[in-house]
């Protein structure tokens, strides 16, 4: 099934993606090519379908029974909507960070290795192996020093900023190729936002990151390409520098200048 595209520079390629919630159409003919190893931001007014698009890239949308999707989404050369695709494998390659930090009601340690355990398929994983994974994942998200003495405490006791970092950390042991982030900083204070942004910036290169944000400054600071959506359609997709300086589209310009509110 792997094709030549698997080594191309495109991580996510969508063709004519349409999506309905029941009878309500939320996405219209979305055609996108999202580059590999870069950070791409997705902006647009509330309700334009950013979350919907993100959630269809790891097929988590399907938890709702009434969602219908047409078109194709290829991630690293695999059509993830093909009939013989295993959802578990899709989600192994594509990690997701949600708007509200959602650590599992387990210990910090168990949160970090949850995905790893699920995917390893082994009943017993040596403790030393797990310990190493926990340490390296938490170090990567700059959380190790603050939590190393309380790894067995409930993850829900952490501050929101720490929780969100943990939610990023728990994706890493699974070694995903793509990280989807839906307004990962919107529940955080400015300091937390800065810390998490910093972290996302550091992950660039190793991962393809698609990040939804309402924060223009954030999109500008923290992304290399930018997608502007409006009413379920992609209006403009360009390098971030260009889109913010010389938008080709009047609607994009209006939005960037804050005329949509």
């Amino acid at each position: 099934m792997a094709s030549a595209e698997a080594v191309s520079d495109i991580a996510i390629e969508t063709r004519q993606v349409n999506l309905w919630y029941g009878t309500f159409q939320a996405l219209f003919d979305v055609d996108l090519q999202i580059p590999r190893g870069r950070i791409t931001s997705m902006i647009g007014p509330s309700g334009c379908g950013k979350t919907t698009f993100l959630r269809s890239v790891n097929r988590i949308n399907e938890r709702l029974g009434y969602v219908r999707t047409t078109g194709s989404i290829e991630v690293l050369g695999y059509d993830i909507y093909a009939p013989d695709v295993e959802l578990v494998q899709v989600r192994k390659r594509i990690g997701m960070v949600f708007q509200r930090p959602n650590p599992l009601p387990l210990s910090i340690r168990d949160n970090v290795v949850f995905g790893y355990r699920v995917h390893s398929g082994r009943r017993k994983i040596p403790q030393t192996e797990l310990d190493e994974l926990v340490e390296s994942a938490l170090r990567q998200v700059l959380l190790w020093d603050t939590v190393k003495d309380r790894l067995d405490r409930q993850a829900t006791e952490l501050s929101l900023e720490e929780q969100q970092k943990l939610c990023i950390a728990r994706l890493l042991p699974v070694k995903p190729a793509v990280l989807l982030m839906d307004e990962p900083c919107s529940a955080l204070d400015p300091k937390g936002t800065e810390a998490v942004e910093e972290l996302i910036w550091q992950l660039r290169g190793d991962y393809t990151i698609l990040i939804v944000t309402h924060n223009m400054a954030q999109a500008r600071r923290a992304s290399e390409e930018c997608i502007f959506m409006l009413l379920g359609k992609v209006v403009e997709h360009a390098p971030t520098d260009e889109i913010f300086v010389t938008p080709r589209n009047q609607e994009t310009a209006d939005y960037i200048e804050g005329r949509y509110g």
Binding site: N58, I60, R63, L87, V88, Q89, R91, K92, G95, M96, F98, R100, N102, P103, L104, P105, F114, G115, V118, H119, C167, R170, L171, V174
Partner: peptide
């Protein structure tokens, strides 16, 4: 439900 969603997004069956 966010717990279930989080776990499913991590690839749990």
């Amino acid at each position: 439900d966010t717990y279930r969603e989080a776990a499913e997004a991590l690839g749990a069956t």
